[in-house]
Design a protein around this nucleic acid. Sequence first.
DNA 1: TCTGGGGTCCTAGGACCC
DNA 2: TCTGGGGTCCTAGGACCC
Length: 422
Amino acid sequence: MKLLALVDCDNFYASCERVFRPDLKKTPIVVLSNNDGCVIARSKEAKAMGIKMGVPWFQVKEAYLAQGGKVFSSNFALYGDLSKRVMNILDGMVKRIEIYSIDEAFLDLQHIQNKNQAYEFGVYCRNTIRQWVGIPVRIGIAPTKTLTKVASHIAKNTNDGTGVYCLKKQKDIFHILQTLPIREIWGVGHNLSRQLNQLGIYSAYELAQMDIRFIRKKFSVVLERTVRELRGEPCIQIDDHSEPKKQIVVSRSFRDRIESLSELKSLISNFAVRAGEKLRHEKQKCSQVSVFISTSRFNKQLQYRGFDSFQLPCPIDDTRSILMGANKVLNTIFKHGYPYAKAGILLSQFSHPAFIQKSLFETTDQLHLKQDENLMQTIDDLNSIHTQIYYASQCSGGLSPIQKKMVSPKYTTNWWELPTTK
DNA sequence: TCTGGGGTCCTAGGACCC
DNA sequence: TCTGGGGTCCTAGGACCC
């Protein structure tokens, strides 16, 4: 039987903050979202204090700090860099790896014959990452991706301290699924678990016993795959060649509400510029530019969501054309008198530059579109280290006036913030 | 007062083709 | 009055993930 492994970093953002602050080894740590709005990561100690994932910071701030907890604004430069280091190590250990998220990767253990070897490999993996990067990981090993998630879940709670769990024998699998609520299964979210509960299905074991045809008919092929995977039948393959992106989103919530069109325009311009950089980095061109603006979903009195798209006559990757499209959409969806809390831009309908369908009769100039690869390349180069070239419609202050009061240094990605020693 | 950001996949339905 | 059968492509919306 083929085995897969899921390597999952423990409380990743909180662990990253600890790498350069060993003094915080036992201290509760939480990391906040942009604008220091919500809690998006918690150390084990913070979890034990009852701090929930996604809770608004202002609700728990006082009690948490009073108990000696430590808080950080999010520092994605640091997390991204440490993630790369972890993934590089894993990449060197196996032939096939799928980097699933910033803190998770699936490994193909095709070179491993039996359960004991798999376990030893897991321990070796974990120790190496711990020693080389300083990040603790847990490892779940099983025949299918869905079961590696289950195994990783158990690895979190084992008392032997290895953080590695191998789930292989059918008897063990069923035994564990019996005590696992369906909401904990990878691929079963809030909605599905509610619907399944209504049918009297509560444990992963009960779900695994369901009739496949019934699940397919009543739900979808997605849940069917989950059921099969719980039974040990691999349906979701390791995807080790990253597909090109299909859409790019840049969006932010605002610290203060915004009512004026001109202010929104300059913020959307900032988003558009960043989206253009991402698009060119992906080596893609887009044919559709969408913009959305919305009031706070917690403001019950005054709610509005605007969304619309602009179809470009041919695929482009020039920021000036993206700005033009974004501006047009914003003008049509903007309504006066609303306190806007969030906005964003979405680029879609990508085509690879090698296969661009050009207009038969008109040049990009005649279509009133700007497209100049050399200019964009030059600007990207100039801005790569430190932004030097701005578009006239942009505003200063980055993507949006974001508040990050408690951000740690960019220890590994900025010369001026390297850790020092006395 | 203050509530994140960035993705993917699947399905149903409509438009259109021969 | 009677009006086929088999496709593709696109989009919106809903579900999920971290």
